[in-house]
């Protein structure tokens, strides 16, 4: 419900898997890609459906939840305060690494800088104490060192291998 009681505009978004989302305008405008769509098509009808061919319904729902909360925090002057940190921690707690990756891909496509920053920070935090093997598997990276080369690098940074989490 709009606080000012004005008729609020709804933006229609259609995902790659064909789901239609109805999103409040201020939340949809957090997505740079949606904002530029309307900037470029100023005379777009109110019921225009914006196609999002690179995003499926599950991550989009997650993104809307996050952006909606953050738009409200800003409106209430709570940006940067503890309740935001609490919300962010709660938001990320139950998300698997796979869900996080999907969210990052979607946030990147929709071009939401603040959320992308938060998500990539979360990934960095989850990875900082992980083993080399874990990180390779996580990002799908092939080891192109010879065993001798790898051993030499490991030896050079031996101290950095202390205190690594179990995979």
């Amino acid at each position: 419900m709009s606080k000012l009681g004005q008729a609020k505009r709804i933006i229609f978004l259609k995902t790659a898997d064909g789901q239609l989302f109805e999103v409040d305008e201020p939340v949809a405008m957090e997505f740079e890609i949606v904002k530029s769509f309307f900037d470029e098509n100023e005379d777009a009808a109110d019921d225009t459906v914006v196609p999002l061919p690179n995003v499926s319904a599950e991550p989009l729902a997650g993104i809307i939840e996050f952006c909606k909360a953050h738009v409200e925090f800003r409106a209430n002057g709570a940006a940067g305060k503890d309740e935001v940190k609490k919300f962010n921690a709660e938001y990320i707690k139950e998300k698997s690494n796979e869900q996080l990756k999907e969210l990052i891909l979607a946030a990147n496509y929709l071009n939401i800088k603040e959320m992308l920053d938060f998500l990539t920070e979360t990934i960095a935090n989850r990875l900082k104490n992980k083993s080399v093997e874990y990180v390779r598997a996580f990002f799908g990276i092939e080891n192109d060192f010879t065993p001798q080369e790898e051993e030499a690098v490991r030896k050079e940074y031996e101290w950095a291998f202390e205190g690594v989490d179990e995979d």
Binding site: D117, T120, I123, A124, L127, V132, I141, R154, Y157, F161
Partner: peptide, 19 residues
């Protein structure tokens, strides 16, 4: 976006992920 956010110790360890 991700790797620049890691601490130096992690980066030193991850030097042997790939070339």
């Amino acid at each position: 976006d991700i790797l620049p956010k890691l601490p130096v110790k992690s980066i030193c360890r991850l030097k042997c992920v790939s070339k």
